[in-house]
């Protein structure tokens, strides 16, 4: 493998009068959990949007395993193994829990519109296979017993676990989680942390937007501190959290 696993170099993005990202650079190591921290409006979600091809940066580039992502569409980027979640979840509310996962399973031909008509039996076999694959993912995250329920009947904690389940279904090796623990009860929080650590142990890599410094210290191998679209520091969680200057920015001191 040439160079770092995921490498963001000099990325800038301006929306009208707002400089969302300003010469933003950092790198991610494989098999690690990297936490992206910073005050509100620091550009954390913009970083996700640039990496996954949702927005095209004005300058700079993103490389994943040596390949330049910056001009690719989101479809190819997911195909290469990067999948992101959303801060506001964006679950398919009217679909069952199971179907929320099956839609995220990759497909080549099984989602062809004419296939159910031209090859009904083959399609039925594929449907069953996809449902079984989704079911085993739901078992992994502990939602198998809710597979048939509508998403809107799930608790908020369960909905957030389902978001991770969808990313697992995509087959991605690098998962980008946007605030996976915000708004969770203590119990749901522990379930989420345990799941992320379990997936990390199984070889997945994470980039996580996280606000709570205590959770950052429990999860992160590396912390990227973002402020006004620029990376102020990257390093071990203990060092970043202990830095008084960063603490002041983070908790609303100097601006």
């Amino acid at each position: 493998m040439s160079g770092p696993y995921l490498d963001v170099t000099g990325v800038s993005k301006r929306f009208g009068g707002l400089q969302a990202l300003d010469d933003c650079s950092f790198a991610i190591e494989p098999g690690q959990i990297t936490c992206l921290v910073g005050p509100n409006g620091a550009g954390k979600t913009s970083v996700f949007n640039v990496i996954t091809g949702f927005i095209r940066p004005d300058a700079g580039q993103v490389r994943f395993r040596g390949q330049v992502l910056t001009r690719m569409g989101s479809r190819r980027i997911v195909g290469l193994g990067i999948c992101r979640s959303f801060q506001n979840l964006r679950l398919f509310a009217d679909l069952s829990v199971l179907d929320n996962v099956t839609v995220y399973l990759p497909s080549r031909t099984d989602e062809n519109p004419f296939r159910p008509i031209l090859r009904p039996i083959r399609t039925e076999i594929e449907r069953k296979r996809r449902m079984a694959a989704a079911m085993s993912i739901l078992e992994e995250v502990g939602l198998a017993h809710r597979a048939r329920d509508a998403v809107r009947n799930l608790s908020y904690g369960e909905q957030k676990l389902l978001c991770v389940a969808r990313l697992m279904a995509s087959g991605a090796e690098l998962l980008l989680l946007d605030e996976p623990t915000s708004g969770l009860s203590a119990q749901a929080l522990e379930a989420m942390i345990a799941l992320v650590l379990r997936l990390k142990a199984a070889g997945r890599t994470f980039l996580v937007v996280e606000h709570n410094t205590r959770i950052v210290q429990r999860l992160a191998d590396s912390v990227v501190f973002l402020h006004q679209g620029h990376v102020l520091a990257q390093g071990e969680p203990a060092a970043i959290v202990a830095d008084p200057k960063l603490g002041e920015i983070y908790f609303g001191g100097a601006l």
């Binding site: 959303f86 009904p120 594929e126």
Partner: peptide, 30 residues
């Protein structure tokens, strides 16, 4: 055919599109 299409993976996909196009894009689907 209608019944087959609705229960197929494609049927699931178009249902998901009605719910949230952005989340379908994030899944790597066109």
């Amino acid at each position: 055919f209608f019944w087959l299409v609705l229960r197929s993976p494609f049927g699931r996909l178009i249902n998901a599109i009605r719910e949230d196009e952005l989340a379908v894009t994030a899944a790597g689907k066109s």
